[in-house]
Structures are given as C-alpha cells and as structure tokens.
C-alpha cells in the first residue's frame, strides 16, 4: 500500500459543505471496519465549534492540529478557495493533501502545487476521487464496497472509470493494494510517474493497472519511468479533436495526446494495452 495506512489521521477541509458532510461518515464507517484512525477533525473557516457526524470542526488547520494528530487532509472546499486550503495544509506541515474539488482554475492549481512541493507536501488531484487501500484506509470518495485487498495497484486519471475497473477486478477475484485517482485536470500534483515510483517501492504491489485518457503525455512518461508490470487502458480512442470530453484535461491539442498515438507509444514501450475495460482482469492475471 502507498501514501497512507490505517494509522493515518485525516482532516477534512470543507467539512461543513454538502460534499464534506456527506463523505465524512462514509470515510469513518470504513475506518471503523478496518480499525483505522479515519477523519479526526474537520475544518471550515468560521464554522469552528460545530460537529459533523461526531467529528469536531475547527476554523483552521493549525487550530485542528493543536487538538488532533493528523498527517493528511482531504479537500472538499469549493473551487474558488480549494487551492488556498491546499496551501494552508502544506504550511501547517501536513504530508499528504488529497484535493477532490473540480473546476479549479489551472493557474491556482499551478501555484498551490508548487507551493506545496516547496513545503515538502504531496498533493493528489485536484479533480480526483482520492485513494483507497482496501483493508487499510480510504481518503476520498472511491466506493469502498467495490474494492478488495490484494496485489494489484491501480492508478487512474478518471473517477467512475476507475470504479468500473476495480469492480471488474474484484469480480474476477483480483484484489488491489492501493487505488489512486490522480485527477482529470491538465495540472495535477501526482502524475503517473510519481505514483508508479511509489508502487515500485511497495512490496505488496506485484503489477499495476494504468488508466489514462486523451490529452497530454503523462501516461507514456509514466510508463517509460518504471520497471513494474503494467496493463494500460486509454479512454477516448473515438474522441473528436479539440472537443473537451468532460474532463478539463481530456482534450486533444494540436494532434498531441490523441488516444491512438498514446496507445502506439505505450505498446512501443512493451506495455500491454487493453482494448476494453472488461479485458483488464485477464491481462493483469498474467503478471501475478
């Protein structure tokens, strides 16, 4: 497992909003099931003193850290202030920041990610479902009932497509070490390369499923950077050029990043590329 485990205390930023208040109990139900620490406190400026499903809310991260032991933050703060929350967490010394929020202006993201990097913090996202290590911890919104513990790492730019793949893996009896959604935005804190490096150091992970999509070249860069056994799937083979396919990052710019050439480059690196998500379990089984 990578990034976090059952001993990781978690803060939720944007705890009193719809998303935060909805997901705190889901994360904590899972933490209870697996005997983990889970969400120890929430943070919403101006709402200190409230409590959400038994989790105390503070006005700032530093205030929360005076009372609780936490090393990660999950950010549900609305787009306009989400990156401020990322910088607040990095400044306060949190090691891991998972930004779920979508539609954040990319200039804000670039600044906050660079600031967090200089503070020594790791940012996952934004516009991501977070991560789950089955049997250990869940930081974010990945539906825990779809996942089971095992030896396959999953790293993906997508949300629901990730759920599809872990659903198929679990149905096929193949468990996961950690599932990481790195986010659908053009600029994200952890790229495929970063996550694959972690999987490379993880003894539990025997092979990795890489789920990419049209836009950019992070998939190829990641695949080229690792010795791990990989099965890749790339969504958007039929995506028309210069149309945004839902994700801000999923746009083919000037002939760069279209799915077919991405697949060709991955195959050129010797990577197995699945034609359809349903094929992934059989392909990954070959590496276990």
């Amino acid at each position: 497992m990578i990034f976090a485990d059952r001993s990781t205390g978690v803060l939720v930023a944007g705890a009193t909003g719809n998303q935060g208040a909805f997901h705190i109990p889901l994360m904590n139900t899972y933490a209870r099931e697996v005997g983990g620490k889970g969400v120890v406190a929430g943070v919403t400026p101006g709402k200190g003193g409230q409590s959400i499903h038994g989790v105390p809310v503070y006005n700032s991260i530093r205030e929360a850290l005076r009372e609780h032991d936490a090393r990660a933050s999950v950010v549900f703060v609305p787009a306009g202030a989400a990156m401020d929350s990322v910088m607040e967490a990095a400044y306060a010394g949190l090691e891991l920041i998972v930004a779920i929020t979508e539609q954040i202006p990319v200039h804000d993201t670039m600044k906050a990610i660079e600031y967090a990097r200089l503070q020594g913090a790791t940012v996952i996202g934004p516009n991501c479902p977070g991560l789950i290590s089955p049997g250990e911890c869940k930081l974010g919104i990945i539906p825990s009932h779809l996942a089971t513990r095992g030896n396959v790492g999953v790293v993906s730019r997508s949300g629901t497509l990730t759920y599809e793949v872990i659903h198929e893996l679990t149905r096929a009896g193949i468990g996961q070490s950690t599932v990481v959604g790195i986010g659908g935005d053009p600029v994200i804190g952890q790229t495929f390369s970063d996550v694959l490096e972690r999987f490379g150091e993880d003894r539990e992970t025997k092979a990795v499923v890489l789920i990419g999509e049209v836009g950019g070249s992070l998939e190829e860069e990641g695949a080229a950077s690792t010795d791990l056994s990989l099965v890749a799937y790339i969504a958007g083979v039929t995506a028309p050029p210069e149309k945004r396919m839902g994700h801000a990052g999923a746009i083919i710019e000037g002939g760069e990043g279209d799915a077919r050439s991405k697949i060709r480059r991955l195959e050129g690196l010797g990577i197995t590329v699945a034609d359809r998500p349903g094929e992934i379990p059989d392909l990954i089984r070959g590496f276990l």
Partner: peptide, 17 residues
Amino acid sequence: IGNGAGLTMATIDLIAL
C-alpha cells in the same frame, strides 16, 4: 449517457470496438 467523463468516453470507445 454515462456518469463521469472517463466512463462515458470508455463507453463510446466500446461501442466503436
């Protein structure tokens, strides 16, 4: 009709496949 950009794109690709 799908939920999530990746899953919807994958659905369209699968139709073509």
